Simulated assay, not measured.
Amino acid sequence: MLGLSVTTLVGYLAVIAVLMITPGPDMMFVLTNATRYGARSGVIAALGVAAGETIHVAAVVCGLAAVITASPVLFTAIRWAGAVYLVILGIRAVRLSGTANHSHPERGATPRQAFLRGLVTNLLNPKMIMFSVAFLPQFVDPAAGDPTAQLILLGALFVAVQLTVDVTLGAGVGRLAHRMTDGLWSRRINRLCAFAFVALGVRLALG
Rank of each mutant, 00 (worst) to 15 (best):
Q138R: 02
T32N: 13
G207I: 03
G63Q: 01
L176S: 06
L200M: 13
P126V: 07
P111E: 13
A100V: 15
V57S: 02
R40I: 05
A100L: 15
G98M: 11
L169D: 06
V120F: 15
F195R: 10
M128N: 14
V87K: 05
A65E: 09
L192F: 15
V120H: 11
T8H: 01
A46I: 05
Y37M: 03
D26G: 15
N101T: 03
G48V: 13
V30L: 11
T110F: 08
I44S: 01
R107C: 05
H56W: 15
I88Q: 02
Q113N: 07
L124D: 11
S186M: 12
R92W: 01
V49R: 09
L31N: 11
V10I: 08
S71C: 11
V18A: 03
R107W: 11
W80N: 02
S97Y: 00
G11K: 01
Q150F: 01
N125I: 15
H104V: 15
R92G: 04
V15D: 00
V87L: 07
F75M: 04
A83G: 06
L206R: 12
S97E: 06
H56C: 11
L136P: 09
D182C: 09
A45Q: 09
L176V: 08
G38D: 06
S97I: 04
L31D: 13
S5V: 09
V120G: 10
F195K: 09
G108E: 02
N125A: 14
L13R: 00
L154Q: 04
T32R: 15
T168Q: 05
Q162E: 10
V30P: 08
V94E: 00
Y12P: 09
L4T: 06
P105Q: 07
G52V: 08
G24S: 03
L96N: 07
V61L: 04
F195N: 07
G155P: 06
M28S: 15
S97W: 01
V6P: 02
P111M: 11
V120C: 10
G183Y: 07
H102A: 02
S132D: 02
M27K: 12
V57N: 03
G118L: 13
R203T: 14
L136C: 04
Y12R: 03
I21N: 12
I189N: 09
R40L: 08
L2D: 00
G52K: 08
D141T: 01
A100W: 01
A134S: 12
S103L: 12
M28W: 14
R92K: 10
